[in-house]
Design a protein around this nucleic acid. Sequence first.
RNA 1: CGGGGUGUAGCGCAGUCCGGUUAGCGCACCUGCUUUGGGAGCAGGGGGUCGGGGGUUCGAAUCCCUCCACCCCGACCA
Length: 565
Amino acid sequence: MRQSEYFIPTLKEIPADAQIPSHQLLLRAGMVRQLASGIFSFLPLGFKVLNKVIGIIREEMNRIGGQEFLLPALNPIEIWEQTGRVESMGDVMFHIKNREGLVLAPTHEEIITVHARQHIKSYRDMPQIWYQIQTKFRNEPRPKSGILRGRQFIMKDAYSLDTTFEGLDESYNKHAKAYKAIFDRCGIQFFVVGASSGAMGGRQSQEFMVESDSGEDTCAVADSGYAANIEVAVSGIPPVGRINDNLPLELFPTPSAKTINDLINQYGFPEERCAKSVLYIADDEPVLLFMRGNDELNETKLQSILGTANIRPAVTDELIKYSGADHGSIGPINLKTKVRIIADSLLKDANGLISGANQNGYHYKNIDFTRDCTIPEYQDLRTVQAGEPCIINGSPIRVVKAIELGHIFKLGTKYSEALGANFIDSESNEHPIIMGSYGIGAERVLACYIEQHNDSSGIIWEGPLSPFHAHILGLNESKFPEVKQIAEKIYLDLSEAGYELLYDDRNESPGIKFNDADLIGIPIQIIVGNKNLVNGKVEIKSRKDGIRQLVDFTDIVSVLKGIYA
RNA sequence: CGGGGUGUAGCGCAGUCCGGUUAGCGCACCUGCUUUGGGAGCAGGGGGUCGGGGGUUCGAAUCCCUCCACCCCGACCA
């Protein structure tokens, strides 16, 4: 590719709107341009690299027996109504305004299931792995971080169809293996975490994460290998348990204690013995939750316990209505109305607790959960904190921010049941198809690579994502015809040898060429300048470490072969 | 949706508080000459609905009202 004819609009200055390195570099290297919030155009160089990402994904999907589809982005809304996801997706799904009944697909479980229903009739027809690489539309409330969170993006989404849960496990494990291969080949450092299935439904899921301050997810990881999304993470922190002095229940005035910290500071109670009460409203029903001290409620965990995403903290009126008191004085004893109560597992059967008396300005102390009140249900409600021991070997948990690159789900039969995608087993019994769903965000792979491979000069490509094998820089070609002549010859020879080349034949100063080359970041720069050419030499510069070597220009093909051997 | 910020040439910005020549600077762009191994120099030149609309005023980039867009934090999010 001759750079004089190739559209790579590099930028010297950092665009003001770009905050994170990948966004800044994608713009500066002339790879993408933003069209609107969360909507990006890929320019030739950016599209070239994106296609390399897609190519690797495609190869690894084919390797596990995946069959590539291309499903429509325009979907009839009826199908989405049958699975209830028009409602659960809410504003995230784009609805077509001037054609009633069409939506833009944010994912494709429904459409895949419809096709499975049409043609997968027998256990003999399975297993199947069906995938596509296609544009998804999601009306994100707040797009951010360049191409990391857009309203339109390319996703590799795959779906497995199996007859048994053992088969699903196998399909799922194949995808996990393929995903590792994909990200390894791309040269991305990643880790895998156990994750919440969220609105997708299903029984097990894992996320492929890249640790990054730009990430929107939070994960708990430990040296033991423990890794989980904070939404589901657990720690090995011991339960509060029982103390020996089981004193009688005692009501006492706490006129100025509104928070757990007030109780600790004013009365000297140990934090872990203060049972924090939180009232939530889930699908219009009150749920009273008890947590240890200042533990943070994990709403995702609560959602899966309650089986609904529709939860919110109660407002003051509701607190008074259900408990008899407002903030700071709610507790398990003498509740005004009967409400569902769930306590965190750490408080199981504990005593010596302090909690609100459901009467403003009063708390109880010496509460014994087994003596003074009925706690019908203990669940893991808390959010894991950094420094807590992990459940594998007690090594301390670190809490890190991460970018979600991929997500694999064991869906089960949620979609096949809703849409009636059934098959007949060997004994003529009908069952819903057992499904899995597996996604990778293509742009995120690209962005994460750049997040992990850059320096102050620009992007550093290595390996299969690099847009070109080598960048030939012809310095001052108009002044030194022999420079042009040799650069052209190198371009020709290497092209014939099968290398992908970018040849900077522009009439620009050497400084501009050097800086653009470092910014674009092609791994090998072949610098053809009069200075070395008078001795028959050209310079080979490695972008990654800046190491330069002089080689005879006649040897250039074998030198490249050595580098790419 | 709540909070904060920004909007002036392709990019980065000053000017706005305190209204007053023809709206400015750097980079980029065009022409010419010179230059040529880490973003060249000189000379000349082109490019603006100052985000849109409305208002106040003799006069608005500047003050007021309103709408919009974009960025950040939060909420939300497979």
